[in-house]
Design a protein around this nucleic acid. Structure first.
Lengths: 215, 215
DNA sequence: TAGATTGTTAATCGATTAACAATC
DNA sequence: TAGATTGTTAATCGATTAACAATC
C-alpha cells in the first residue's frame, strides 16, 4: 500500500543519463532495431553496463536475462519517468536572441513540450508573431498564466531582469522555471528551477583546459 | 617535492560552485565590500558554510579566523584556479541562431575568453562579419587553427553535423570542445568536452515537474 | 578575554562499481 | 546444456556534513 504512494525520487545523475538513453534509443528504433542489451548501450555511450542496468531499474524497466530489453518498452518507461507524457506547456519571457532561438527551435515536440506564448516589455516586439507564437505585453503574464493554468515559465531576458521576472512568475503560480540567464535567481523551494548557465559551462571548459596544462 | 608536481584535480561539483562564488564575489567587490565570511556567502547562495570553506580550501584560498576572507584575494585565487587568467581564444563553427547568439554575447570578456573567428559552409554567410568577427569557409578551419595555435573549438551547428565537425576539430589539434548541439559526440579521451545540452536541461525540468505531481 | 570564524580531521551519506545468483 | 545477460545485494569510492581545535 505504502509502496505505490512512495515518491520515486530519481537521483540527478541518473536522470541526466536517462535523457541520454532516451535520445540514443529513439535513434535505434528509427534504425528498426528492436532488442538491446546493457552491454550494447554501454559500448555505444561509453558507460558501464552495470550503471545502465541500475539506471534502467530505477526508471522501472524490465528486461529478460540473455535477451536484454525491448527498445519500445524501454522508451515507454523512459517517456513516463521523464515526464514527456504530460502536457508540457510553457510561457517564455524575453524575446531577445536566446528567446527567439527557443521560439524557433524544432526539437521540443519530441518531449510534448510547447511554448504557447511569449512576453516582453518592448513595444516593438509586442504583438509580433514568431514561428506562430504571439508576443504579449509582460503585464498580461499573470492573468494568462492563471487562465490557461500554465505551469512552466522560461526566463530568457537579460540577467538584470531575471529576478524580477522570477518574482512575477512565482506570484502567477508558475511551478517550474527554466532559467536561461546567468543570474542565480532566488525562489521559494517548492518551485522547481533548472538553469542553463552558459557562463558556468564555459567556465568548466576553461578550468579543465587550464588544469590539463598544469599536468 | 612531489607535492607541487601533483595535479590539483578539482571535483566537478566544486568547480561548478567556484564559478558561482566568482560571480557572486565580483558583484560584492563592485559594491565596495572588502571582507567576507563563509557564513555570509552561505546565507546569500543558500549553501552551507562548511561546504564553502571546503571549496575555497580546494581552490587554495587562505582566510583569517574571526575575520574571514579578503574578496580581492579570493577573486585572484578563483581567477587562476578557474583558468580565467589564460589566453582563452576560440573558433566557432556554425553561424546559425545559436552561433550568432554567442558571437554577439557580451559576457565572455570577464573570463578573458574571445571568439576570434567563425566558420560555416553556407556561401551566404562566408565573408560576412558579425559583431566584428569574420566568418570563414569551414575548409579553412584546420589551417587557421594550426597557424594561430587555437585550442578551443565551439560547435554550434545542427546536431547532424556535430560529429563531423568534431572530427575536423580533433584532426586540427583542438584541445577542448564546447558542444552546443544535443548530439553526444565521440572524442578521444585526451580532448576536453563540455556540453550545453538544451534538451537534457529541458528534460530535467519536465521530469522534476512530473515527479512533483506524483507526490 | 570571549566569541566568531577558519582549517582540518573524522563521520556520514549517496552514488558507483563489484560480485554473484537467477534465468532465458 | 552452456553462456550471456538481468536483477539484486554487498563493497567501494568520493563528496558532503559534522566536530572540534586553533586563532584572530
Amino acid at each position: 500500500m505504502a509502496d505505490n504512494l512512495e515518491i520515486k525520487k530519481i537521483p540527478e545523475p541518473t536522470l541526466k543519463r536517462l535523457t541520454l538513453y532516451y535520445q540514443y534509443l529513439s535513434n535505434k528504433l528509427e534504425q528498426e532495431i528492436e532488442q538491446i542489451s546493457c552491454t550494447d548501450i554501454a559500448r555505444d555511450l561509453d558507460l558501464t553496463s552495470i550503471q545502465i542496468r541500475k539506471d534502467l531499474q530505477i526508471a522501472g524497466a524490465k528486461g529478460k536475462p540473455k535477451i536484454g530489453y525491448t527498445i519500445e518498452e524501454l522508451l515507454d518507461v523512459l517517456n513516463s519517468s521523464l515526464g514527456y507524457d504530460n502536457i508540457n506547456e510553457a510561457f517564455l519571457v524575453g524575446v531577445g536572441n536566446f528567446g527567439q532561438l527557443l521560439l524557433n527551435y524544432k526539437g521540443f515536440k519530441e518531449y510534448n513540450f510547447e511554448i504557447l506564448a511569449a512576453f516582453d516589455n518592448d513595444a516593438n516586439k509586442i504583438d509580433k508573431t514568431i514561428n506562430g507564437i504571439k508576443v504579449f505585453d509582460i503585464n498580461k503574464f499573470e492573468d494568462l498564466v492563471k487562465r490557461m493554468k500554465i505551469k512552466i515559465g522560461i526566463i530568457a531576458t537579460n540577467s538584470d531582469s531575471a529576478q524580477q521576472i522570477a518574482d512575477i512568475m512565482v506570484q502567477s503560480d508558475i511551478k517550474a522555471i527554466w532559467n536561461l540567464t546567468h543570474f542565480n535567481i532566488d525562489l521559494p523551494n517548492n518551485i522547481i528551477r533548472v538553469d542553463v548557465n552558459l557562463s558556468e559551462s564555459l567556465s568548466m571548459l576553461l578550468s579543465k583546459l587550464s588544469n590539463m596544462y598544469e599536468k
